[in-house]
Amino acid sequence: MAEQDLDIASVAQLARLTLTREEAQLFQDQLAHVLEYVDKLREVDVSEVEAAAHAVPMFNFFREDEAHAWFTPVEALENAPHHAHGLFIVPKVVE
């Protein structure tokens, strides 16, 4: 497919990840190389193949819908970078 139109800046934006100029250049080169290699997947005829899940197919595996003890609010906030009054504090979202 040799789609070397990998636009690092727009992909980084999709991934919510700021890259330095140096990183962007490095990844551009390295990932172009990786994608070129991945192109070998094109050699295979997959027209008759369904996508795979895993070795032991299983579906609709449910557990009982029962309430059980889990984190208290205090525990849930223990690792929060910013919290106050039992709430996560986040940057302003609406203007």
Binding site: M1, E3, V38, L41, R42, V44, V46, V49, E50, A51, A52
Partner: peptide, 12 residues
């Protein structure tokens, strides 16, 4: 081109 094809090759 990538993800879906890779899943199929996984099946092969």
């Amino acid at each position: 081109a990538y993800y879906s094809r890779a899943q199929k090759i996984r099946e092969l």
